[in-house]
Write a protein that binds this DNA or RNA. Structure first.
Lengths: 185, 185
DNA sequence: CCTTTTGGCTATGAGCATTAGCCTAGCCCC
DNA sequence: GGGGCTAGGCTAATGCTCATAGCCAAAAGG
């Protein structure tokens, strides 16, 4: 019996592939085991539990988001940066609905997710810093932005909007609404 | 062995009480059975499956929301109505976070939920009708409103905002942002 | 009063996460 | 090259979940 050469990272990879293919509900240790060519209990050599696998997946997804956003935002500022960030967020949720759904809404509660959550939050704060928002005002604005992008992306990723043809228009309207609420220079 | 005198409605009641008490994850047929004083398989005399119980619960929650909103909105119109609706939505999510989480994001996909979903949607449309929005514009505005209230309520109900002290301010800011985006008379 | 339907029950099975305990492949060190 | 240790696989077993089958009595209704 040759070894499969598995690792924690490979298990997370397989789990992410799995939910991309078959949805978040299909995330089961048995399914991950099958995909990695291993018996289910063997996964425990690399992952403490299903819950821990979920948090490891969430860390990966949030890091992926942070990287993607920072790449999209390079060289941009102001309204352009805000719109780019919002579009990138939506884009990711549409391309990977299961990954979006796999992100916990309260990352800062779990110490294992806090770092990745803080890094992601920092991207939002950085984009809004250009508007002279500081302290409490920055927090409120970030929360508003987060609520908007999360709400829209969650509903769209779940297929919750009835007519799919002009969702772009709705999203652009949402972007305009938020941008208009920011203090002008 | 005397009969428990159960009914479908009573099972749904017990299930709603259960998630209010112990969270959505605690929703299990065994737990509902215990709460109704019956063996688990007996529930199948009143409910087809756990999935069907979930949709029945969702219908009840959405109807509850519709009733609550229409009651809060009587005699109001314009910005006042919009703000009232948004506050009522948030209030419900905070008071019953599990019920809020139990609502599917895509009610119109399930025929059993379509009626309740449409009635709830109609409340949103009615509030925006006062602004002269019609056809496509009304749809976009409703989607924006829905994304905002759903996003904020979901994050707050899940405990996703870090500092809880001035969430009211954030929410009022969100209300103002949306109201400002509506066409003035 | 007898019959039928209805609403309980126990027993059972499939699938899940998880634990325990074994066994060997592959590496380190002599 | 050989000895042993560790790490990574395995099977077996436990206890939870939803769900089905089949029995049996309570209530309803003629």
């Amino acid at each position: 019996m040759p070894r499969a050469g598995l690792s924690t990272s490979a298990v997370v990879d397989a789990a992410l592939d799995l939910i991309d293919d078959r949805g978040l509900d299909a995330l089961t240790l048995a399914a991950v085991a099958e995909r990695t060519g291993v018996a289910a209990p063997s996964l425990y050599k690399h992952v403490g539990s299903l819950a821990q696998l979920r948090t490891l997946m969430a860390v990966r997804i949030m890091d992926e988001l942070t990287e993607r956003f920072t790449a999209a935002l390079v060289g941009r500022s102001g309204d352009d940066a805000v719109a780019t960030l919002m579009r990138a967020y939506r884009r990711h949720a549409v391309e990977h609905p299961a990954r979006h759904a796999a992100m916990p809404p309260d990352p800062l509660h779990d110490p294992a997710l806090a770092r990745a959550g803080a890094r992601l939050l920092e991207v939002f704060l950085a984009v809004l810093r250009g508007y002279g928002l500081e302290g409490e005002a920055a927090i409120h604005a970030t929360r508003c932005l987060r609520a908007i992008v999360h709400g829209f992306a969650s509903i769209e990723a779940a297929g919750g909007f009835g007519l799919p043809e002009d969702l772009d228009t709705t999203h652009e309207q949402l972007i305009h609404m938020f941008v208009a609420s920011l203090p002008r220079t």
